[in-house]
Design a binder for these strands. Structure first.
Lengths: 231, 231
DNA sequence: TTTGTATGTCATAAATATGTCACATAACTC
DNA sequence: GAGTTATGTGACATATTTATGACATACAAA
């Protein structure tokens, strides 16, 4: 499993624990990914850094402690929150865990609810820096948190409707939507406007995109609707 | 006791606990201040915000939970890490504590070493955000401790609300906030004022900023809200 | 109390966005 | 190519959103 964006990485050699945790996470709308050892975890983190790591203390090969230390040393992983999971309850271990760079420490068996609560507490603190919802397609960058669109380095000015329209298409690239579907998704249901109104807004969007050499991005599919090309 | 700068505030009605904790803290070079109830704590926090708060769950008058919630609601105290101390060990309480805004939760009796380790783990993470008394964006310098704003060398005079507003935007540059979000973050929740009031204060802020050649810093994003441009 | 500053709200002006129409173009059918 | 249909495009009246000045009230300092 390789989630697209924000997700929590569970690193533990015990399959049962991983399953239990992932189940609990998914019920709270968290994306979840698993790794059975430190090596696999490292690869996954490199490819797509998670928002938080749940790390088992004991693992074959590299121990959780060493792995945490390593993550803390690298600037690109340094700021990812780590919660350590372990059967070891002795005080010394807790302290060693925390000192190795973990942000929190939970002893097995732990309650899923407490785990979730601790995850949320950690994310609450660390998200503000990370929260950037950016979608990239074909040199086009749309940032939903700053309401900015950039193409080939230049800023593109869009009206509210055009922004929503582009966002919708960028969230579903390469898919054709009928005018009715566009209306329902961008304008919302229960709003009545002429279907041809979509054409006009597509026009306005295209015009704005032309200014930064994005010629054929929004394509017409005759008889079917429109599509944002990803090719 | 009123430490000058960075310090950790211990809020607990039990003197013995306070003494024990402060002893442990001072051995680790942490400054320490004590408060025996929420009311006193509030006054101290207002005068000189601590770097971290150790908060007892049970206190006469306002409970630790309610106090934590309150701190989380106010923007100026929102980022101070809280560790909750308690005799209550039941899972539900842990969760309630964490959900009320605490960052960590320790049950009495706890080992001073574990407490220290958890404090360090929290500070390690939160210091970068909190310690920055001075925020700089685009030739604008805002000093949260002296309530001064300077732009291109000149001092800018702002009213309290405008200052908080600017501070909020400077802490979250390049992000668009709706009027409602601005109200919640700058005025605080549970305060009812018209959304349009934000417009007026934005106007006053802009006017003040104009005097030092900061023309287009606070931008309107039609249909969405306002943004402090970082570009 | 007086004086001065700060704050929230309103009314109105100004700016911008929106939906629709009419007509131009392009695409498809036969 | 003529006829037919779907889409592109500019213009425009209207609606919506934001800017701004004024004002009454609250609050604090003198």
């Amino acid at each position: 499993m390789t989630p697209e964006n924000d997700y929590i990485l569970v690193v533990d050699d015990e399959r049962a624990i991983r399953d239990m945790v992932c189940m609990a996470l998914s019920q709270e709308q968290f994306q979840c990914a698993e790794a059975s050892d430190a090596h696999k975890a490292e690869t996954m983190i490199k490819q797509n850094p998670p928002q938080l790591i749940l790390l088992d203390w004991m693992m074959p090969g590299v121990s959780g402690i060493d792995f945490a230390r390593k993550l803390r040393r690298l600037p690109e992983t340094n700021s990812i929150p780590i919660i350590m999971l372990t059967a070891k309850t002795e005080e010394d271990n807790v302290i060693r865990g925390l000192e190795s760079g973990a942000d929190d420490y939970l002893t097995k068996p732990f309650s899923p609810r407490e785990l979730i609560a601790r995850i949320k507490a950690l994310l609450r603190r660390s998200t503000p820096n990370t929260t950037q919802d950016i979608i990239k397609i074909n040199n086009l960058i749309l940032d939903t948190s700053s309401y900015r669109v950039e193409g080939n380095g230049q800023t593109i000015d869009l009206g509210p409707t055009e922004f929503k329209l582009l966002r919708f298409f960028m969230e579903n690239p390469d898919r054709v939507f009928s005018r009715e579907q566009v209306l329902n998704n961008v304008w919302g249901d229960n709003v009545y406007v002429e279907e041809r109104t979509v054409d006009v807004h597509i026009r306005r969007l295209r015009k704005a995109l032309e200014k930064t050499q994005h010629q054929d991005l929004v394509q017409t599919v005759r008889g079917a609707g429109y599509r944002l090309s990803n090719k």
